[in-house]
Amino acid sequence: MSAAKRVQQWATFARTWHIFDCKWQDPYQSADLIKKYLMGMHKPIYHPMNDCGDVVVCINSRDIALRGDEWKKRAYFHHTGYPGGASWTLAWEVHNKDPTMIIKKAVYRSMKGNLQRRHTMERLLIYPDEEVPEDVLQNVTNQIRQLRLVPTRLDHIPEDEVRKFPKVMDYPKDYVYK
């Protein structure tokens, strides 16, 4: 194999590092997206027997958004193995304990249970906020687009823009807000 072909091989099979911002994202819908990058299914060279999965760095996992009242209703099951060792923990409790756990479990659940799954999970790095170690961040060359728009709070929009926004009518000056 010539030197040029060897470099071509390295380039084609190089591991890319992607970053994904979990802010206001549904972990279960994002998991299907993250899974594709972790397993390399977004590449034209994908084959299940081909080691072409990428690394995904998830940030802001503390700010994920579950749908409806899932924070109160979704339960995570664990069994210690002893009789009576079953426990059900609610999503908000799990999230308080470890803010990376829900997204990790969602990605783990989205993949098929085979021998490769735990090795693929090793390539998923999750950080609860925006603080990512420098040696991780310097590898990142791509960002995965989010699924949902991150809404902006009204009090975070500059006052000029709020005033300029078209209104149908103005409240009278003596109007009392509830």
Binding site: I19, F20, D21, I59, E130, L137, V140, T141, N142, Q143, I144, R145, Q146, L147, R148, L149, V150
Partner: peptide, 14 residues
Amino acid sequence: LNVAKLPNPKFGAN
């Protein structure tokens, strides 16, 4: 992307 500093909402937003 070669020169962008990631994460960047320009490349991350839907």
